[in-house]
Design a protein around this nucleic acid. Structure first.
Lengths: 221, 221, 221, 221
DNA sequence: AATGAATGAGAATTCATTCAT
DNA sequence: TATGAATGAATTCTCATTCAT
């Protein structure tokens, strides 16, 4: 279905980049079916045939844009350094960072939503997806280990699951801000989200901390 | 249902229902732009002109489906009764319930994502949306008050914000299960989600509990 | 690739017919790749979507037109009756008829040429092609048998092969009239073709007649 | 080759040849409208602008390819020598040769079909087409004269018309082999065509031979 | 002489929507 | 109330052709 994204290895320069950026903007704004190749062309200031020449077809363009979304996000993630911070502080920092990331790069969230609506059909086809995996998980593992070693954190916490929790707390309010605003009249803006990130940090830290009374969380079920 | 805002309020009954159900299925499966009026007609076993006669146009059909999504979800929420439970246990129950809700009615999540991609343009137009607002928030308020009164929970927690946190923890792993599965190789299935709900409950309870050492969360930033 | 030509069993009437006739005209005039769906629509006086609704896609339309070409030709062939004629005369009549057929229905020749350029990919897909097989072969078989019984014709002649010879002699000068006219300055017109048919009849008859001197044709190879 | 009528007569040599061969292959395989300049370029291993530089445009390229088809075919025809053969044998040899020619150079047949679909618009424009006229006609004239002089053949046979008959018998089964195979289940392969050529030779010879009984063919119509 | 990059003008196909009955 | 038939306006994708170097 989708042609290779390396169909034109000779094409290198700026044109491909411009198309890719425009495509990322278009797909993240309108979803796959709502995206228009015409608009990508206009926005990239190239003719439509160039898009087909560089990328093959709409599916392939989408695939390239999706991969680009991951690549850009992961590139940003590589910036934060938490290795030498106090574990609790490191967790809070990661949450803040994640929230900011989602707020400042809203296309990432919409790309993920779009791709999940498509049941992940396209991510699956991206080679090396696993390799571009979040570095946050690695950082979380490190923090968890250091926190446990220092007697601050519980043991047995899976970093991937913790990552999902952290991402959840940041993703949802950003992703759903429009409906939340209307339906619950929650005034979601930058300040609200910043505050939410702090609370999420607090929540995660409390979740990780060794319970003064009992080492194992009591099961009330 | 109160007097409907649809174009042809004269229509009622089973046909309208079938169309609405079909539309909800279609929009939630394919998003707004990916949805096909033909498929709605086929799935509802009516002719296309009927849809136009009953609902006006695709936008109006979408609006009706979106409202229906909220209505159905809220109807489900009215079932849970937590008023007489232990506050901690009530929180856990609410989380479990929310997760199950999202898992069993996946169309709700995709409708919300679709609507947020559209920047909430349509929810805004739905009359009485605020009225169909989650009863969960009311329940949370009650639980928080009872917990605080009992000396178990901290005070000053906004129920709406707590609701967002709870929803976040349940929504994200379900909504993003396809990409999470591929990118992080997290084996998201029913069992995983159930476990995640338990952990989310634990997390929320710990977040709410009065901290033995310090009443107010320390700000390390 | 090609959708079923019975996609719209409810569509019956004149519209389908008009499209089919227009398509036959278009494909036979321009070949498959030169044919334009727009022109078919204009010529049939319907909108393009109707064509897609009735036939599926260009391939399927072509398939229907090709089948129609065979059907129409075979229908014409059913008219000639040679059963009770003198065998030699019957042969001559068949040749004359075939030539006239090709001259008066030139779309048949171009459809065959078009289909052969496509290596018969599409005829192969037409159900019951063999059944719409030329009735001429049956007639030839009958004539050959009667001629042989009457001691006029040689035996051992394969009717299909004889049919190919007869068709060859009529097909080629019509099919290639434009190039023949230019390259060999042969003035191919109705009269010329009529005369050619007479000569072809003579040729076939002489080919079939029992050789006065030797029963078996001498092999000089 | 005499001074070419192509747009850029300055070009010559191997590159032009490669393009021409590629074009002949492309046009004969796909027809005019189905032919792709890209494929010609790829197959000739030159860039597309080269093609335009050498030949002008697609029409001109087609024209050159068509002329080339005739030139190559006529070049082949010059090889056979029948001047000193027994007239009957010469006829048989010519038929065999023609059939082989068509079988081994199938691009000729498809080029002719393509050009006839275009109503000979392009042959007409080729300068000197008449000069590259089949040498077979000259040979046939010679054979007919010798045969008549020897009392073997009838007189009054037009060599051009005889050529058309001979060509018909060889052209049609090759040109239409795909449809014949499917529709009449005639197993057309090399052996079948060879046999057909023998029968065609027999047919032509019988057609030409002086009829012992009646000199002039009887007209029964 | 040669080509990588680029595009205008189509061409097939789709889809929300309406007409006629 | 109900629908089979029909279409205008896109939308994706292609292709002959040219530009710039």
């Amino acid at each position: 279905m989708t042609k290779s994204e390396t169909a034109h290895p000779r094409h290198a320069g700026a044109t491909r980049r411009r198309i890719l950026d425009a495509a990322l903007g278009e797909f993240s704004t309108h979803g796959f079916d709502g995206a228009r190749v015409d608009r990508v062309a206009a926005s990239a200031e190239v003719s439509k045939p160039m898009i087909y020449s560089y990328f093959g077809d709409k599916d392939a363009l989408y695939k390239a844009a999706l991969k680009e979304a991951y690549v850009q996000i992961r590139a940003g993630e590589r910036e934060i350094a938490t290795e030498h911070m106090d574990p609790e502080e490191a967790i809070r920092k990661l949450v803040r960072f994640t929230m900011e990331h989602f707020v400042q790069k809203p296309w990432f969230i919409t790309m993920l939503n779009t791709e999940n609506l498509r049941k992940g059909e396209t991510v699956r086809e991206i080679e090396n997806v696993v390799e571009i995996q979040s570095t946050l998980i690695a950082q979380l593992r490190n923090i968890l280990e250091r926190g446990a070693a220092a007697g601050q954190f519980r043991t047995g916490i899976d970093p991937a699951e913790l990552y999902v929790m952290m991402a959840s707390l940041c993703f949802f309010p950003v992703s759903n801000r429009h409906t939340l605003r209307v339906v619950f009249e929650v005034p979601i803006d930058a300040a609200w989200l910043t505050r939410q990130a702090e609370e999420a940090g607090e929540m995660l830290v409390r979740y990780l901390r060794i319970d003064p009374g009992s080492e194992t969380p009591k099961q009330t079920n």
